[in-house]
């Protein structure tokens, strides 16, 4: 659907050259929700703008539905842009137009007949749940409502692709959830491929199928959200993952645990199916061992369970070793080190 081939973008600032995007190769499949995550200044916003040529690549190419978009004439490029909806962090609604006027705008550009426009606008506003706000002006709306208008406007010309530039970064957590659910609905019900960029890992966790992590203009890790969360490779990726799942308590608490004579702690990671079986309980019972869950979480990732628990065992040392050996066959388990510092 979208294919970056060693795409690069270099800006010239005076005599200085800034490489915003460095030879990125990525392939976004039809129907998926693909997230690009990175800290601010990582180049993700520039990368996103290569998709609809708001920025031109200075090297490499970007293909959309098999066409190298750099080869398109201005006229064909404008046609292509109608098939790529875009939403923004600051919504970018027209203040001089009503909600309905904003949603109608791309249809007017496309020369759609008036009657069709009003029908389509009504349908879109119903889809995003803002039918009663058609005649309001943007300044009368809340942030979440504004983004809904942004989404309705981006969907007006029935695009195949929706690109989202930090679409939830200006919203509060509740509203973020609301907008993410709406994006999921856009993907599921309308079959629209979504490419989004964000600096918030929970956005990736909530709706993405696959993720790419960007740092200093380059993609440093790509994979399914589940694999990336359960087994992050790059230190930056690990930092992002830790931002949403506290996988270990603070060192103070750990030291306190040890000072009180607490047992060794083990990290147990469950993935998918195993999370539904009573593995811990059945294996420890078999060897007459007690287990104690000290810390951790079990969450949903891409509609699969993902558990990350800190566990201690009580009982004979040898039996504990046997328990660990047996657990290793079905789940990941490792001892947690307590740093002295």
């Amino acid at each position: 659907m979208i294919e970056f081939k060693q795409a690069a973008k270099t800006f010239r600032l005076g005599n200085r050259e800034v490489q915003a995007v460095k030879e990125v190769s990525l392939s976004i499949a039809q129907g998926e929700i693909f997230g690009i995550i990175g800290f601010s200044g990582a180049g993700k916003s520039t990368l996103l703008r290569l998709v609809n040529m708001l920025e031109q690549p200075t090297a490499g190419s970007v293909q959309v539905q098999g066409v190298d978009i750099a080869t398109l004439s201005q006229k064909d490029l404008r046609k292509l842009r109608r098939r790529i909806g875009m939403i923004f962090q600051n919504f970018n609604l027209f203040t001089s137009r009503t909600v309905a006027g904003n949603v109608a705008y791309p249809l007017k550009l496309a020369g759609t007949p008036k009657r069709e426009i009003s029908e389509r606008v009504e349908e879109l506003l119903r889809f995003v749940g803002l039918s009663d706000k058609a005649n309001d002006y943007p300044e009368q709306l809340s942030g979440g409502q504004k983004q809904r208008v942004g989404i309705a406007r981006a969907l007006a010309t029935s695009p195949d692709i929706l690109i989202c530039d930090e679409a939830t970064s200006a919203l509060d957590p509740d509203t973020t959830g609301e907008i993410l659910r709406l994006l999921k609905k856009v993907n599921k019900e309308l079959g629209i491929t979504i490419l989004l960029i964000t600096h918030e890992m929970h956005v990736i966790q909530a709706i993405c199928d696959r993720v790419a992590v960007m740092e200093e203009g380059a993609v440093i890790e790509t994979g399914s959200v589940f694999d990336t969360f359960s087994n992050p490779q790059h230190p930056t990726t690990q930092r992002f993952i830790q931002s949403v799942q506290q996988d270990r308590p603070s060192n103070t608490l750990l030291k306190e645990w040890r000072a009180k004579g607490g047992q060794k702690l083990y990290r147990v990671i469950f993935k998918g199916e195993v999370a539904s079986d009573p593995i811990l309980s059945s294996i420890t019972q078999k060897f007459g061992i007690h287990f104690n869950i000290v810390y951790g979480s079990i969450r949903e990732l891409q509609e699969k369970f993902f558990g990350n628990l800190l566990v201690s065992f009580e009982g004979e040392v040898q039996a504990i070793e046997l328990v660990i050996a047996e657990l290793k066959r079905t789940v990941e388990i490792e001892e947690v080190e307590i740093h002295e510092s």
């Binding site: 609809n52 708001l54 404008r78 046609k79 292509l80 842009r81 109608r82 790529i84 875009m86 923004f88 970018n92 609604l93 705008y105 791309p106 550009l109 496309a110 406007r153 010309t157």
Partner: peptide, 8 residues
């Protein structure tokens, strides 16, 4: 930018 992205 939004208008541009919509093909204006």
């Amino acid at each position: 930018e939004a208008a541009k992205a919509m093909g204006a």
